[in-house]
Design a protein around this nucleic acid. Structure first.
Lengths: 229, 229
DNA sequence: AATGCACTGTGGTCGGACCACACCAGTAGG
DNA sequence: CCTACTGGTGTGGTCCGACCACAGTGCATT
């Protein structure tokens, strides 16, 4: 058992027991080292791992926001993991795309099933922003990613939203590169805009099957066009 | 930009460019520190993060297997992340269960669609092992987890398999606890065994819809009985 | 030729030190 | 009285140097 793992265990136990809650500050590195009777580097390695997992965020300085704070908003630490596994060729791009289709078609189906209680404001605002034809491709794809995450969030499942966001984010670089080499980008972008609107309309109208079909065709169509995955 | 992040970037760049490939050994910590002109602790923190992400594994000693080696088998580093997020109450148990249903019903549907080319050996062997009525609950649930992962693996999507395995593994402790307080465990276990067989049979017979329905009922039924999620 | 042991390189751990930063309180100036 | 500066203080960030445990390697002994 490595020393930093010991620190991780103790912190996890504190979390599970409710002695540490989101928003709380961990004791300082020196204090933790003294409490667990380990060295400061070992504590730091453990905190690094917690940070990489999205459990805590660290900040220097003093005051209430300094130190290692347990995050309150579940973030998307999977992004970096997926990107690295993509880099090592452990994960084929095709698997990621297919998983996106799976999660996203489920999400829009769920959302359409509860259409009357949805807040489509954020998603609509993103689509409006994407209508700007002067948008740089980088910005366009960033908004596209946000839209798809907003779409997935409508289903109300935090885990699915997080995974979706990480998937979309992890392949952002690849999408950007592939789209840049695409002839007639303006026409492609226009098609994507129309498809987005159609998906959102189907969700709003409560048409579950149609929403799922549209989003599936939208994603698979783009990756086929861009020859990614 | 923190120093250890700088190290991470360089390593990721080496991975993406193919200069580092699965099975390769990273240079020693001292060598990396010298190469990047940073201190050894910074290198160590970066390696810790890579280890937590399942990109490398480290071993002491000398010889070909010592040091930080890029893993060849994609593992499930998500387990620890999910478990910790569960401990922080960031993720509701219900979301995890619903996500399992989603992924697993998709997986068995896919598998049933390619039933003729499946190797059902591993999954069947696990079910045979679970038939032993003298099995301790801990062992039973461990085999159950392995069976569900094997089931998901039949779909041939590495990402879905990995996520599924992590989901099942992360809630293992909770399942164990809930099942222990269940009256008439023997009867419950018998029901689970029958349901497992039925799912596998449906997959083997290529009955996509039926396999998906069975696995959905199986998972949701258990968690309703155990009052988890 | 077979056996045992010192050598060497690896990660693991530690203590101490200094830096940059951000907040906070006390003080000098208006 | 209020404002603006300025030091103090505690935080994480980084570094250095050292020693340990471990596992192969190869030489020396038998």
């Amino acid at each position: 058992m490595k020393t930093y793992e010991l620190v991780l265990r103790r912190v996890e136990a504190d979390l599970a027991a409710g002695r540490l809650r989101p928003g709380d500050r961990l004791p300082g590195e020196r204090a933790l080292a003294a409490e667990f009777e380990v060295s400061r580097p070992s504590v730091r390695e453990a905190i690094r791992v917690l940070e990489a997992m999205g459990i805590v965020r660290t900040a220097v300085g003093s005051g209430p926001d300094a130190g290692a704070v347990i995050v309150t908003e579940p973030s998307a630490p999977l992004t970096a993991i997926l990107r690295l596994h993509l880099a090592t060729r452990h994960l084929p791009m095709g698997d990621i795309v297919r998983t996106r289709v799976l999660l996203e078609s489920w999400a829009v189906r769920e959302a359409a099933g509860a259409a009357e209680s949805l807040d489509l404001g954020p998603a609509t605002a993103l689509l409006d922003a994407m209508d700007d034809t002067d948008l740089a491709p980088e910005r366009f794809h960033r908004l596209d990613a946000e839209f798809h995450v907003a779409l997935a969030a409508l289903a109300g499942n935090a885990l699915v939203s997080t995974i979706m966001g990480s998937l979309r984010e992890a392949i952002h670089g690849y999408v950007l590169e592939a789209a840049a080499q695409l002839p007639g980008w303006d026409r492609v972008a226009d098609g994507l805009r129309r498809e987005h609107r159609a998906v959102l309309a189907a969700v709003a109208a409560g048409e579950e099957d149609r929403a799922a079909e549209l989003v599936t065709a939208h994603i698979e169509g783009f990756y086929r066009t861009a020859r990614v995955g």
